[in-house]
Amino acid sequence: MRWINRRPGAALAAFLALVPFALALAAYMIGSDMRLAVNPSDKLLPAPSSIVDTALRLFTEPDRRSGRILLWHDTLASLQRLALGVGISAGLATAFGLLIGLLPHVRATLAGFVGVLSMIPPLAVLPILFIVFGLGELSKVVLIVIGILPFLIRDLSQRVLEIPREMIVKAETLGASTSVIALRVALPQLMPRLLQAVRLSLGPAWLFLIAAEAIASDQGLGYRIFLVRRYLAMDVILTYVAWITLLAVIMDLALRALSRRAFRWTETAL
């Protein structure tokens, strides 16, 4: 039997999915053990037990100076920036995607421009953002928007163009105006695509968020990681990295569940 036709059973599939995680953890533990055996005060690869201790401390104990639990504080600040940046991008991308996808005049005007914009490396313009928008929240949100908006616009306008012409013509024969076609035909069919595109752009959004926080900020998950880097506090960094990963995974799963729940019509039964 060919390998392309062999499929793992449910139990084996679950086991295989766990294998890479277990291997990565084991590799880390072995490396950590080896380094700690040579130098018990080694900070580079702290033992898993000490990471757990640090994590418990970070999640529960307030900071001695400010009296706040910094991790929750950082999380709140970062998620707020991320939500603003992604939300604004999604809204703008929906509007521009519909306009570019439906109206040939707007497409002729903007499609090339957005294509060129999307080629600008967003981090290269970060200094400009700091100069123009200052070091506050605005420049960080703008960086996320600049980073993911061109991709979202290109993706969504393409999706609008992929709506079968027959469907648009049918709406025309039912007397729909351009705005009704946009609101009642194109927009509802675009929404599942929007969630899909947002899921894909969450990775870059985190990247730009942490980059902006690392360079100029006084709170946030990225800020904390780059702050404690100076003290080689690997246990804190690893805890934050794991926490960010967990948040990203939860967001991804939540968006997928939302997409399934809200757009039942995309599922083909029978």
Partner: peptide, 10 residues
């Protein structure tokens, strides 16, 4: 049309 004549989201 042969295909795509109804709105899938309604």
């Amino acid at each position: 049309f042969q295909k795509y004549s109804v709105f899938p989201h309604m």
